[in-house]
Design a protein around this nucleic acid. Structure first.
Length: 469
RNA sequence: GGGCCCGUAGCCUAGCACGGAUUAAGGCGUCGGCCUUCGGAGCCGAAGGUCAAGGGUUCAAAUCCCUUCGGGCCCGCCA
């Protein structure tokens, strides 16, 4: 869809961030194509069908017209240009489909065009993710699996099974039949009376669908790994289930059992949901920009004496850290309504709080300027000291649990709780000046341990552990 | 119509997989203290809850089962 719009515009050079530039084209193009489609649908419906359907189409059309009005106001030049170019076409939807078909068939021009647009988007994604310290070891092209015939090979195997049927020229996968014949209902944790709907594998024009390609992709990934964790939104629950059933149908039970769908819930905006097709979203770049901006204000307020450059440096890791913490802190299954307040916390139960605690421990070590030479740990008699020791000792268990149950929030929670304990300790007892020296040394060792464990915990969730801030 | 996820103080969340040491735990916000000590992005304290509602199982339920309500998602020749 977006490649279609991009080509109509004559493959313009991106202005600004490439993914955002392409994003605008996508939003406007998809809106115009949708309106065109609905209008044709409406004409067709008028000649044949009932009032009910006409009313439904009219409602959809109204909604998209208002989206169009919004987009026209936001990006007037782009909107006008695309409206004109797409307007020349009788059936833009058809052109999009044609392009898609050409791409799957390996047509050189289509390949070049679509890969070009995709690369532009990916460059933008990589830039954004780089800002928050995320990078990927490798990237794969779904289309490679089509061109290399891996998708065709999967389809051939499935065709030999009794689980495919053709309806209206479309190849369908009968997931329900697989469950019944292989007795998978319990294994998959499904209710007795729940019928899994069929999955369309191949369109009438011979092109494949996303989940079809995902079957081949998944099997390929299993050649490289024992366990697979697909991090995909929960709106894909059914598709992921069908994918797993398809693996069973292919006789790949081990792979199916080791395939985990790690579903996360959607983020919505107060009042409406995010939708890139409708241009309703907050870009992650914006979130980070705002976080760093607010962090800078905080730094300026708290440490006005620092040079500007130092403030900016601190604001960067504090702002980005706050965003990472906010994202990781909440269980992924919860529906989240986005508000700035929820992301930008600089007090307790936040990345900055833990970072501050870490810096504070480092500061004590700096100031002491000695190694704990003769620590007498038996002198650590305070209840709080015992609690800190126990908390430190439980870190490996927390790590294992977090990894085992895919709950990174446990690491954040742990670091926050350890910070609480250390800050209380810090406030109640002297470290450097404690008497006798053996006690001071023991407390220094404790402080050093807290610093190390906090650093490790922060590392795990990708948050900078600063020595000063 | 069917399926899945979520519902814990004004707000945001932990605990739920493995029911019991939980008098239901934190944070934000509110109110009151700490400002002579190693970094105040801190520390101490207070108020605030029928764990959505109703049934059931159990010696024991926020946790397990059923029903209802509220919010979200899915049931596409989209991805």
């Amino acid at each position: 869809m977006v490649a279609y719009g991009y080509e109509k515009l004559g493959k313009p050079k991106p202005e600004g961030k490439p993914d955002q530039f392409i994003g605008k084209i996508y939003t406007v193009t998809s809106c115009l194509v949708e309106i065109n489609r609905l209008k044709r649908e409406l004409e067709r419906a008028r000649t044949v069908s009932a009032d009910e359907e006409i009313a439904k189409i009219n409602r959809d059309l109204d909604e998209w017209m208002s989206v169009a009005a919004e987009l026209k106001q936001k990006f007037p030049a782009l909107f006008e240009e695309l409206l004109e170019r797409i307007g020349e076409e009788e059936n833009p939807e058809d052109s999009v489909n044609k392009l898609n078909r050409a791409y799957e068939e390996g047509d050189e021009a289509a390949k070049k065009l679509i890969r070009e647009v995709s690369e532009l988007c990916l460059d933008g994604f990589r830039e954004t993710l780089g800002r928050i310290g995320v990078s990927y070891d490798s990237w794969d092209w779904e289309s490679d699996f089509v061109w290399s015939n891996q998708v065709a090979s999967v389809l051939n195997k499935l065709k030999k099974s009794p689980y495919l049927f053709v309806e209206g020229g479309v190849l369908e996968f009968d997931a329900e039949k697989v469950i019944r014949e292989l007795g998978l209902r319990q294994r998959l944790g499904l209710r007795e009376n729940y019928e899994v709907p069929p999955l369309t594998l191949v369109r009438a024009d011979g092109t494949t669908l996303y989940t079809t390609r995902d079957i081949a992709y998944t099997l390929w990934k299993f050649e490289k790994a024992e366990k697979l964790i697909n991090v995909i939104g929960m709106e894909q629950n059914l598709a992921q289930l069908q994918l797993k059933i398809a693996l069973h149908a292919l006789g790949c039970d081990r792979q199916a059992d080791n395939l985990v769908h790690f579903a996360y819930n959607l983020v919505s905006l107060p009042g409406y949901k995010m939708s890139s097709r409708r241009g309703h979203f907050i870009a992650f770049d914006e979130v980070m920009d705002e976080a760093v901006k607010r962090a800078f204000e905080e730094v300026s307020k708290r440490s006005p004496q620092l040079p500007e450059k130092e403030k900016q440096h601190i604001a960067d890791f504090v702002g980005i850290g706050a965003v990472r913490y906010a994202l990781i802190e909440v269980d992924t299954s919860k529906p989240v309504v986005f508000t700035w307040d929820r992301v930008l916390n600089f007090e307790k139960n936040s990345a900055p709080y833990i970072q501050y605690t870490h810096a504070r421990a480092c500061s004590i070590m700096r100031k002491a300027n000695r190694k704990p030479e003769k620590p007498a740990f038996g002198l650590l008699k305070e209840k709080l000291e015992h609690e800190i020791v126990l908390a430190l000792a439980s870190f490996p268990d927390t790590f294992i649990e977090a990894a085992e149950y895919l709950k990174p929030n446990l690491i954040a929670e742990y670091a926050n709780a350890l910070s609480d304990k250390f800050n209380t300790f810090y406030n109640a007892f002297p470290v450097i000046k404690a008497e006798p020296k053996e006690l001071s040394d023991a407390r220094l060792a404790l402080t050093d341990s807290v610093h190390i464990v906090l650093r490790n915990a922060l590392d795990l969730i990708g948050i900078v552990a600063p020595e000063k801030m």
